[in-house]
Design a protein around this nucleic acid. Structure first.
Lengths: 182, 182
DNA sequence: GTGCAACTTAAAGTCGACTTGAGGTCAAGC
DNA sequence: GCTTGACCTCAAGTCGACTTTAAGTTGCAC
């Protein structure tokens, strides 16, 4: 009911710290195999019973939630690990520590949102029009930027944007509203 | 690198239709191997010279831009193909036809933006706090929803959300701002 | 008509993120 | 003590989206 290894205000009796891999799988929504995989990458850690079975602390759930959130913003597991490695594990990370790590994503998220908004704005205006002259089409460029956005964001594949030349200024396609319409 | 070969910018009527795979690669930013791969999936098509080399029409650039945009909103190539298959190829698709196809993404994009905004809103508030009781934590649920969002969005991996039970209602963790702090 | 870059195919390889399988061990209820 | 199910390890397999490799062909400038 008091301080726990975990450090959270623990009211009462019936909360059981050590989770088996099956329990952790149930509660995290990941398969046990995925949890072992995460462990092999150093994303989470487990103690072992005398018989060699894994036992997890509750804090592991937070680490997993963090990893999953990281994936959502386009980070690879390796990148998530880099972020997680900045957290202490022995004394459970304080809220401030989590915050600091999480903050670094705000930019990432904002970037992605902006990215999508650009895409949305250009989509009907551009893909349907006669354009897509690649040097000028905003749609293309939006996608291209994303490719350059970072090594971890494997949303976009793309080669380098040095496509440079694009030597045809008077191309057929004009990006914009040549067609009056909309 | 040589001046002209591809015949673009020929005097007279604007177009210089047939692009070689190398030219298409340069202009689309994809590797030639990727273009062959796309062709093998039926995403793009090419005619052949007498010698068997591929020649593409300009419309192909638009199809590629479409595919890349589709990937950005989380669609797989197979899904992009389904969308593209709704377009005629012989008579080049009209703007209205492109629009209709592109429109179906607006929702997808909005969904993704909303998703990210939820994530952002909850991130500092939730991951840093003591919570992450999986049944109640908004962060977890956000991620979970995403997993269910669609078969093509392999952003999130996840098993099914039937994780159901979560049998500890009076769990330690309370999502919210128990800690006063921030 | 030659030289060489750009092209061709088919098959195999890569990468991230896991899953599956084989063969064996642990823990708990009867 | 036995059974059963959850667990263990290690190796290999899978999936999507490509890339790489090998060995051969085309096409265009000179």
């Amino acid at each position: 009911m008091t301080a726990h290894p975990d450090g959270r205000r623990t009211p009462g009796p019936h909360h059981s710290d050590p989770l088996t891999i099956g329990q952790l799988a149930d509660r995290s929504g990941l398969a046990a195999s995925a949890l072992r995989y995460y462990e092999s990458l150093g994303l989470i850690h487990a103690t072992r019973t005398s018989g060699g079975q894994r036992r997890y602390t509750r804090g592991t759930l937070r680490r997993i939630a963090f990893v999953r959130a990281a994936q959502r913003v386009g980070l690879s597991l390796d990148e998530a690990k880099v972020a997680l490695d900045r957290l202490p594990e022995r004394p459970a990370p304080s809220r401030a520590e989590w915050d600091r790590v999480a903050e670094s994503w705000q930019d990432r998220i904002d970037e992605q949102i902006a990215e999508l908004q650009r895409l949305k704005a250009k989509l009907t205006g551009c893909i349907g029009c006669g354009c897509l002259s690649l040097s000028r089409c905003a749609l293309y460029n939006a996608a291209d930027r994303a490719g350059a956005a970072g090594p971890g964001a494997r949303y976009l594949l793309t080669r380098d944007p040095d496509t440079g030349p694009e030597p045809v200024p008077s191309d057929v396609e004009t990006c914009g509203t040549r067609r009056g319409g909309h």
